[in-house]
Amino acid sequence: MIALLVRDLKLSFRAGGGFGLGLAFFLIVTVLVPFGVGPQSELLSRIAPGILWLGALLACLLSLDRILALDWEDGSLDLLATSPLPLEGAVSVKALAHWVTTGLPLTLASPLFALLLSLPPAGYPWLVISLLLGTPALSVIGTFGAALTVGVKRGGLLMSLLVLPLYVPTLIFGAELARRGAEGQATLTPLLMLAGISFGVIALLPFASALVLRVNLR
């Protein structure tokens, strides 16, 4: 399992683009928003939690097809499926590798981008907490979408169509948590719901991902 994690991390650092691309995309979304809605910092600070969450979500989505498609093309998935590593474990590790290269850097960089959108000071810790809790769910759900569409040529658009509706609950509770934190309201309910969704999908969804991957491999 660790070997697979190390390999995936190595590949995404070496192959160029895997690591920095998500961050760059996140930055561009953040920069473009004021061009779209106007530079009034009052408006920006109000919509900042939502924009940052949406940007993180789209940056995640952008790199989903790398999770499994490359291993599918070069035959590694066939070989992994006949290895002693259970496929459920393999997809979990791959989701983890995706999170380490996408979700984690986005979370760590988010305060910087929040600065650009004049997020109220009280919002910073909550923004980081919400992304830290929510982005693993995005990676795990995304891996399920990648496993569903791995056999489809140019399946990126199809995968977005399948994955985005599945992202709705995570987005709602994540953005709500960040927003309430920024406005100094009670945060317990969205915090618990977001944590519940994250732990729920981490525990259960890999079984579905492995199941559809096996179907796709046969």
């Binding site: 569903l148 599945l166 709705v168 609950p169 969804l205 579905a208 199941l211």
Partner: peptide, 23 residues
């Protein structure tokens, strides 16, 4: 097989979304 699994997973997430949207 794939659409059936999607339907089941989707049902869970649709239900979750229903509550999330309410909230």
């Amino acid at each position: 097989d794939l659409t059936s699994v999607l339907c089941i997973v989707g049902s869970v997430f649709a239900l979750l979304s229903r509550y999330a949207v309410n909230f």
